[in-house]
Structures are given as structure tokens and as C-alpha cells.
Amino acid sequence: MGLHLNLSLHKLPLTIAGLAFLAASSIANAGQSELGPKVTIPETSGEQCVLPAAEMRRRHPDLLKHDRIQTLREGLRAEKDGSPLAGSLKQCVNCHAIKSEDKYVRIDNDEHFCVSCHKYAAVSIDCFQCHRDIPEGSGNFHALTGSKQHYSNQVPGTYSLTIKDVANISPEVNSDDK
């Protein structure tokens, strides 16, 4: 499905040249939909994003920036009700990852959700120089979910046990939740 993205130009940190180019092209688009650059917004797997799409387009950098500080520097990784933070890049990727021929599309591909729009808007992102670009367990590397058991320590007589674990398993704590 190819819908035309109505970019709010004033919010985007474009160069003046880029602005002029886009402005010209969107005027052209208004009259004749065949002209000018187009962007395809790919379909996603989730039912609903954290904000309506129009607002998301505008505010996603703020959300990401705000919550990365909370997550990394303060250790706050979920909302009070336990749901993921609105600005969790991990969640963005989980819902918005695009599959092509049964494989997730990576960041070096123009079809990647973030790339498709950012390329259109000529705004470079460096998130994925460090962050994983597709959902976990889907690449060559099988981390966490596949490997947890692998290095679970089940040797009898161990006491590699923390307070947290004890609290974790104590039934009374378990029961008063949910």
C-alpha cells in the first residue's frame, strides 16, 4: 500500500536546499500525483502505536531521546503498569520490522521501516550504528532467548543466588501481583 506521507516540513532539520526541493515537490504533488519523490510507508505487525501516526511522525525523536535517558542512565525500563516505555527503540523495531522473502530487512536496505522515510526526508540517523536493526533472534546471532538455558547454572550445591532471586521465587510476593 502506497500512501503519500504528508511531512510537516518545519519540524524536520533539513538543509535549506532540501527544504526548497521538498516544498517544490509537494506543490507538484498536490496537482499531479505522479510527479515528485514519493515514500512508501510499510505495513507493520502491531495493532497500535504509542501515539497516532501523525503525532508519531512528529514526536518520535523526542520520545526516543527522553526515554533513552531514563532507560540507560536511570534504569527505568517500563511504565508504571509494566508496559514498555513509549520511546523504546526495541519495541519500535519489534513492531515495525519489515520482512521481505521471509527474512527481516536490515538497516542497509531502503525498505527498512526507518530508512524508507528517513531517506525520503534526507535525515540521517545513527541509532543503528549501535542498536540492533531487526528483532532479536532473527539474525545470524541467537542471543538471549535461545541461549538463556544454555548458561543457566543448574549444578547442585551452588549458591550463586541473590536476594533478588529469593524474592523472585517467594510465593507471597508472587501472589500479590496480577
Partner: peptide
């Protein structure tokens, strides 16, 4: 110690 500290101290939605 299990009683001294509940897990809520360490859950995802609490700050370090």
C-alpha cells in the same frame, strides 16, 4: 532477606 527486600525494588518500572 527475602522479606527485607521485595522484588519491586528491582523491577523494570523502578529506577535504579
Amino acid at each position: 532477606t527475602a522479606n527485607a527486600r521485595s522484588l519491586s525494588d528491582f523491577s523494570l518500572n523502578e529506577k535504579a
